[in-house]
Write a protein that binds this DNA or RNA. Structure first.
Lengths: 257, 257
DNA sequence: CGAGCCGTTCCGTTGAGTGGACCGCATGGC
DNA sequence: GCCATGCGGTCCACTCAACGGAACGGCTCG
C-alpha cells in the first residue's frame, strides 16, 4: 500500500510529470519563495533536474523566478485554478446567496465542496468581529470536525462515511467528535433537520451552523455555513437563514443544469 | 520569431512538460469538460499521449475524469492556484480595504495586479445594481482600456508603456484610447493626481475610478477600482475613497515586508 | 583565504515517452 | 441489418528527451 501523503500523490515518481508536480506541490502555505536547493531537499529530485524543470515551468509562467534566484508559484497557476469548474460554477451561483447572508448577519460565511474525506473551501466572507478561523479559500479541513463537512457527510453516499472513519477521526479541539458511533448518530440528526451544528469541535470558542447544497440525486455537492463566537452567536437563530440560502442555491444549480 | 499565443507559451513543445501544460491551457472559460478527442484536436498531441498524460494528471487530481469519459480541470489546480503569493498576499492585505469600500458604496470593486501588458483580476466584489462587466477573478484585460490598468501603467517603469504600445492599443469600446499620444498624456495626468478615470473605454455605459497600490520604489504592484453605470455613478465623488483605500493598502503592504 | 553553499552548465548514457496501429463499443445514416 | 464513423482505451518496438554526476564561478561566512 502506498503511503498517505497529504497531496495524495504517487510517491517517488520516475516520470517527468510526476517530478514536476512534486515540485509544485512542494510549496506550502507560508512559502513565499523557495530556493532551488530547498526544492531539492523537499522533493528529493536531482539538482540539475530541478533546475531544468523550473526553467521550463517559468517559461509558462506557472512559476516565476525571483531576482535572488528563488522560485515562487506563478500567476498563471492562479488563472488556471480559477477555471476549475468545481469551484467556478459553485462560486458564481452562490455569490448572491452568500452576499445576502453576509449582509444580514455580518458573520463569517463559508462555502465548501467535498474532495475525498475532506472539504475544500471555495469561498469565505470574513466578518469583522468574528473569531479567527484557520479556514482559507483553497484550504482543506477534515469533514468530521466542521459544520460544512458534517452537513455534506450527512447527505452523501454511505461509502463516504466509511472512508472518513477509515481515515480516522482526528481530534482538532476538545469537543471534536472522535467516536464513530456518536458521529453516525449526529449525521442522522443532521439528515433529519437539514442543518448541521458545530460547537467548538474544530476550535475553542468557535461555533457554526451549516446546510448542504444538493444535486438532483439529493447528494451534497457543497455546503455553506455561518460561523461566530460561541458566546456571542446563537447558531439556532441563524439556522433558518443558512437553510434557506442552501435551498436557494440548490435550486439555482438545478435550473442551471 | 515565435508566434504570440494567448498563453504566451512555446508552441509545438517536444517536452513532456510542455505537452502537459498545453493540455491544461487548452481549457478555456466556457469549457466545463473536454473529451479526449477534443483535446487531441486542440493541442495537436497524439491520442495515446493525451490519454497517458490525462491519466497521470488525474492521479494527482490536477484534472478529473467524468463518468462520460471526459476531462475537467481538477480541484487540486484550484488549491495550488490559491497558494500563488502574487495574489495571496495581496488579497489578504486588501480584504479589509475592499470590504470597507464595498460597504460604503455597494458598487463593484476590483483588485488587479499587472502581468505582462495585461492586468489579472485578483478580487472582485460585485455590486447588486452595478453594470455587468466582463471581468472575472483570474481573468485578464488589456492595461490601456481599464481603470486599474491605466493606474498601474502610470506608476510603472517606462519600459512597460513601450511594451503596451508594441502589443497594440486594441479597441474594446467606442471610447477606448487607441492613440499612443493620448495615452501618454492621460498617464501623465494620472501620475499627477494619483487617480485614474475610465469612461466607457472598456464597455458602453460603464465608468470607473482606480488608484494604484505601490511598492517601496513607488512602482505599482496592483490597483483597485470602483465601477458603476456612467449616468448613475459619479467617479469624481468616489475618487477620494479609492485613493484612500489604495494608500492604506500601500502602507499595509509596506509594513508587512 | 579556504570551506561550504548556492545557481548554473555540460554531456554521455539510458529508459521514459512516443505514436502508429489496433480493439471494442456506441451511434447513426443508408 | 449493416457498414462508416468517432469514441476511449491499449499495446509495444523504437528513439530521443530527460537524467544526474561532475565541474564551474560567485557568494558569504569564519
Amino acid at each position: 500500500m502506498r503511503s498517505t501523503q497529504r497531496n495524495g500523490s504517487p510517491d517517488a515518481p520516475n516520470s517527468v510529470l510526476g517530478r514536476a508536480l512534486t515540485v509544485l506541490t512542494a510549496f506550502e502555505l507560508g512559502d513565499d519563495e523557495l530556493s532551488l536547493a530547498e526544492l531539492v531537499r523537499r522533493t528529493g529530485v536531482a539538482k540539475a533536474t530541478i533546475h531544468r524543470l523550473v526553467t521550463e515551468l517559468a517559461q509558462w509562467r506557472v512559476v516565476e523566478r525571483t531576482p535572488g534566484g528563488g522560485v515562487r508559484l506563478g500567476i498563471r497557476l492562479f488563472e488556471l485554478g480559477q477555471l476549475v469548474p468545481r469551484q467556478l460554477g459553485l462560486r458564481e451561483a452562490a455569490a448572491p446567496f452568500l452576499a445576502d447572508l453576509f449582509e444580514a448577519t455580518h458573520e463569517t460565511i463559508h462555502l465548501a465542496t467535498p474532495d475525498g474525506t475532506e472539504v475544500v473551501y471555495v469561498q469565505k466572507l470574513e466578518g469583522r468581529a468574528g473569531p479567527p478561523v484557520p479556514s482559507r479559500v483553497g484550504g482543506r479541513m477534515p469533514m468530521h470536525c466542521t459544520g460544512v463537512g458534517k452537513a455534506i457527510l450527512a447527505f452523501a453516499l454511505p461509502q463516504l462515511l466509511d472512508d472518513v472513519l477509515r481515515a480516522g477521526l482526528t481530534r482538532r479541539a476538545p469537543r471534536t467528535i472522535i467516536a464513530p458511533g456518536l458521529l453516525s448518530a449526529e449525521l442522522e440528526r443532521i439528515h433529519e433537520r437539514g442543518v448541521a451544528y458545530e460547537r467548538e469541535e474544530s476550535g475553542i470558542g468557535v461555533t457554526c451552523v451549516a446546510a448542504p447544497v444538493l444535486d438532483g440525486d439529493g447528494h451534497a455537492v457543497a455546503a455553506l455555513s455561518i460561523t461566530g463566537w460561541v458566546n456571542r452567536f446563537d447558531p439556532e437563530r441563524m439556522a433558518p437563514a443558512v437553510r434557506t440560502a442552501a435551498l436557494g442555491l440548490t435550486r439555482a444549480l438545478a435550473t442551471t443544469l
